[in-house]
Design a protein around this nucleic acid. Structure first.
Length: 276
DNA sequence: AATGGTTTCAACCGCTGCTAG
DNA sequence: ACTAGCAGCGGTTGAAACCAT
């Protein structure tokens, strides 16, 4: 049994929007506001799919959209954000007022990719195209190339604070996940020029006999890489874990680890990362 | 002016995550 | 715990605009 279609495909217009359709959509949203896209077309008298209305509004009709070419500053900001976030266009768009994810995605594919390649930078990895990776270690090109460097400075880990605020994890739990020591306040989570703080880092791959108590629950500080990234969701993991005495045992948690080792509802959502 | 290749970008499609029942 | 409905996201497509010959 499949999901019902989002709209009556047979009775909806497709393709380019007409001026009249735009006017109808603008008028409706001005009166009733955004939201409930599914019922909007009918209510607004549009023969369009709700998705199509949403897209048209967000990407083209919204009054706060900035029109015109991207500036050099915007270019550089997009490059930096992409190096941190990857193809998370909506997150990148969130840092560029008046720009939409679709616009940035298109701009990236048509302009910035080429720009980076002309600088000798791989637009996917943001490394010099001459760099080679040998067994996980990056060997830089012998000839220096211009690269976009992301500088990280020491700061109070903001996400850690956020997570505390939401009772999601303790200092030690966070430290376990990030590999930092809570007392040391391991630096390296802030990009000052972007004012963007990120707390995502892969957990240690080394199994060490260390356990942490979090909210009364014993958690293994070093689950296997797969476990930590929640890749075996719903399946029994067969990796080895260590108890408090350092004894190895088979990890048999079913759906225990979520992304970054957070449990249950304590999942880390990109969108919850605060952007100033 | 005509033609064909390339680029741009609005729009679509399919998938995912969240939420309510 | 499960399912269905929905909004939102990212990848892809294709028509229009642009450019070179």
């Amino acid at each position: 049994m499949g999901r019902s279609p989002c709209c009556e495909k047979a009775h909806t217009n497709k393709g380019a929007w007409t001026k009249e359709e735009d006017d109808r959509l603008i008028a409706y949203i001005k009166t009733h506001g955004e939201g409930c896209w599914r019922s909007l077309p009918k209510a607004a008298g549009l023969l369009r799919c709700g998705k199509s209305c949403r897209l048209r509004w967000i990407n083209y009709l919204r009054p706060d959209l900035k029109r015109g070419n991207f500036t050099e500053e915007e270019d550089e900001l997009i490059i930096k954000l992409h190096s941190l976030l990857g193809n998370k266009w909506s997150l990148i768009a969130g840092r560029l007022p008046g720009r939409t994810d679709n616009e940035i995605k298109n701009y990236w594919n048509t302009h910035i990719k080429r720009k980076l390649l002309s600088r000798g930078i791989d637009p996917i990895t943001h490394r010099s195209v001459n760099e080679v990776e040998v067994e996980g270690e990056v060997i830089p090109s012998p000839t220096p190339t211009t690269t976009t460097s992301i500088s990280f400075g020491a700061t109070i880990p903001k996400l850690e604070q956020d997570l505390h605020d939401h009772n999601l994890m303790t200092n030690s739990r966070f430290a376990a996940i990030t590999g930092s020591k809570s007392e040391e306040r391991n630096p390296g989570y802030r990009c000052p020029d972007l004012n963007l703080e990120l707390r995502i880092s892969p957990p240690s791959h080394q199994h060490q006999p260390e356990q942490l108590k979090s909210g009364g629950i014993i958690v293994n500080s070093n689950p296997c890489f797969k476990c930590s990234f929640g890749m075996q969701s719903g399946q029994v993991c067969k990796c080895n874990t260590f108890d408090s005495k350092g004894n190895s045992s088979e990890c048999s948690n079913i759906g225990f680890h979520d992304f970054l080792g957070l449990r249950g509802s304590a999942t880390l959502d990109y969108r919850t990362l605060e952007m100033k």
